[in-house]
Simulated scan of single mutants.
Amino acid sequence: MKAFTEKEITEKLKNFPEWEFYDDAIHTEIEFGNFKDCFSAMSRIAFECEALNHHPDWSNTYNVLSISLSTHDAGGVTQKDFDLAQAIENIVEED
Rank of each mutant, 00 (worst) to 15 (best):
T10L: 12
N60Y: 01
D83L: 09
F32Q: 11
L13M: 07
D37C: 13
E93D: 13
K2M: 15
K14D: 04
L69T: 09
S40N: 04
G75D: 03
F32D: 13
A87W: 02
K14R: 03
N34S: 01
S70Y: 07
C49K: 05
A51E: 07
D37E: 15
A87F: 03
H55K: 00
P17W: 01
F4W: 12
E50S: 06
E6D: 13
G76A: 09
A74Y: 01
N53M: 07
N90C: 09
N90T: 09
F32V: 13
S40R: 05
A85T: 02
F4M: 11
A74P: 04
V64A: 01
E94S: 10
H54P: 06
A85I: 06
K7C: 15
S66L: 13
H55W: 00
M1A: 14
K12V: 07
H54F: 04
D37F: 13
D95R: 12
D57P: 06
F82N: 01
E11Y: 15
A85K: 07
I91T: 04
T28G: 07
F35D: 15
D37T: 14
K80Y: 06
F16E: 00
V77S: 02
H54V: 07
P56E: 04
F4T: 05
K7G: 15
A41Q: 01
N60H: 00
S59I: 12
H72N: 10
E6T: 15
A87G: 04
A25D: 08
Q86K: 10
K14A: 03
N15Y: 10
N63K: 13
N15W: 08
K36R: 13
D81I: 05
H72A: 11
I9P: 06
E89H: 13
W58N: 14
A3M: 11
E31G: 09
D57C: 10
D81W: 00
L13D: 10
